[in-house]
Design a protein around this nucleic acid. Structure first.
Lengths: 338, 338
DNA sequence: TTTATTTACGAAACCGTTTTCGTACAAAAG
DNA sequence: CTTTTGTACGAAAACGGTTTCGTAAATAAA
């Protein structure tokens, strides 16, 4: 059980290691006949080159790092699917890291990336990320990074998003058209640009209809489902109970259904509900949930494509460019626009 | 913008590279005072060691490969969560690969693992995997592998599963007790042991009640949702329409709801439904879905723990051991046992 | 005091590739 | 026939760490 290296092949064929290496990499310096000899031996001995030796020498790793807040979420799962599809096609490997919405973890992960472990990174920031020092530091070391979905605005790089403002605006209009006058907006972060864009879409839709925007109708969640749940429940029990809810993220939709179930509130009769969501089961919920469905797969795929393309260039600089892939509003029975 | 290596530090401190290396790794050979000097410089210059250089020398990579059929699936997403939790804690990195139920892809992935890219692998086999040559080959090269959920029976290694037979048995009994007499079993693979165990649990539950097992009540799906959908629909339109369905995997549950909706079949009045599933939305479906909920997170966590523990040993041999973590039957309104 | 041990460090080999040169020989050009 | 160009290969130096081994000085044991 001796380790099988390029040297083994060299000895076996009476060639030098450099020749073997070049043959395997199909260099023009090597005659077709010896290439054939080499490849046959490779096949026979089942030789697979050590990627870390290559990485060390070539100063690249053919792997991309994906850092995201969580994975048990339809959006992120689908996004990974998109990422993986291009990684597989282009021969890249994908390392996955979860921040669990924790900034400290995010920092540690990016710090590790400074080692050269990954050629580039795909990232959706945590809800705690208000400062971007760790991101700048990584990019300063020359590691290309593209954001998807949850971007950090200021940073000069490519960002793949959906039309957060417009779709929140459309969703709000939809609720308004369906008769809502007190629409509760459920936010999951007060700092994230994505969350604020959605909030602004909501606000402006109200203003355009001549309605007031009030803080009482904006509920910021803490990502601690128990507390969030109670918060929502209290809001739903108040005398000024909203007649519509716009949830800015999938997870919140479930909380809403739970609370409404508990409080015996009927959807959509008592309260209409719409949510950003990629739930595959949206159509089968009780009632079917009206969603703003994000192009999760496409976003992941695009992000990965942009990154890989940049990695293919000698001087991979990412433009400060924003690629927006629109979401679609799928009206179902949780709202009356049906 | 010179590359920052251990040599830089050595020069700066008038020490040898070996001393630096040892200091960083907290070797007892180095005095506390120089360790301190080194660490301070590391901090100051923001030095992060190149992992591939280490990997090359140490012949390990501190990364584990996770190969699974798909990721847009509550079970697998939660399992990854479990895996990641121990990886993060133990300082391992996790490479994710998707087979999309394709044996050829699975083979290519495992082949790549022969390179030493990963220290160990966590795997849930594709539904096409009937032969295990590629798996044996990898293990022969000394790469430890532990299966989770979808295991390959014959292979001598640790396997983390849930109590597939028992829970399918219990689910079937539940349907029988709720009055079903024609229970359709929805299978997603005729070769996978997990699928067959579930099938056997179903069969025996019937036999124990003195009922016949008939092939007409066993429907094998092809993983092509259109076709599967039509297959199911036809079955539901036949004059011998089943009065209960046991779906052996989450994805099928959605298909059932779809078909029943289309055919105006009422659940559970016309047909009762139960499914293996980790859907977070099960309670909010219409009607709420009775599920056999698998301990997905735990399974992933356990699999990773076992693997990491094995990697910690000098001679990491995995026993042929089966760790079974039970599922729980959560009765909801899609069955009448409620 | 002599010998054994411990402490703290450095030189150099090594991990398995890739890549830069150098070169021998053959073929083409002059 | 000499000179240039090409072709096919090898030697050796990287890549950036880790590890083995050697050793000088300090300390402990005899």
């Amino acid at each position: 059980m001796n380790k099988l290296t390029i040297k083994t092949l060299a000895k076996e064929l009476n060639l030098s290691v450099s020749t073997i290496s070049k043959a395997i990499r199909d260099s023009h310096e090597i005659s077709t006949s010896t290439k054939k000899r080499v490849n046959e031996l490779v096949e026979k001995l089942n030789y697979v080159p050590n990627p870390y030796a290559s990485s060390l020498r070539q100063r690249n790793s053919k792997t991309i790092g994906v850092v995201l807040p969580e994975i048990v979420d339809s959006f992120f799962a689908q996004a990974i699917n998109g990422i993986e599809s291009v990684a597989q096609e282009k021969g890249y490997h994908v390392l996955i890291y979860l921040t669990h919405e924790n900034l400290e973890k995010e920092k540690m992960i990016l710090k590790d990336f400074e080692s050269g472990r990954v050629d580039g990174v795909l990232m959706s920031v945590s809800r705690e990320t208000k400062q971007a020092g760790h991101i700048y530091e990584l990019m300063d070391k020359g590691v290309p990074l593209v954001f998807f979905d949850r971007v950090f605005e200021d940073i000069e790089t490519t960002k793949i998003t959906t039309d957060d403002y417009e779709s929140a605006h459309a969703a709000t209009e939809h609720l308004l058209n369906a008769g809502c006058r007190q629409i509760l907006f459920l936010s999951f972060s007060s700092s994230l640009s994505i969350s604020n864009k959605r909030l602004n879409g909501y606000k402006n839709a109200l203003l355009e209809k001549g309605l007031k925007v009030t803080d009482k109708n904006i509920l910021s969640f803490n990502n601690q489902s128990k507390i969030d749940y109670l918060l929502l429940k209290r809001k739903l029990m108040s005398r000024t109970r909203p007649d519509g809810i716009l949830a800015s993220v999938e997870k919140l939709a479930i909380t809403i259904y739970q609370a409404c179930g508990d409080l015996q509130l009927r959807i959509p009769e008592d309260i209409q509900v719409i949510s950003f969501s990629n739930l595959e089961t949206a159509s089968f919920l009780n009632p079917p949930l009206t969603t703003i469905t994000q192009p999760a797969f496409e976003m992941g795929k695009t992000a990965a494509s942009v990154l890989v393309k940049a990695l293919g260039r000698k001087k991979f600089e990412l433009q400060k460019e924003e690629i927006v892939i629109p979401s679609i509003l799928v009206v179902r029975r949780s709202t009356k626009g049906f």
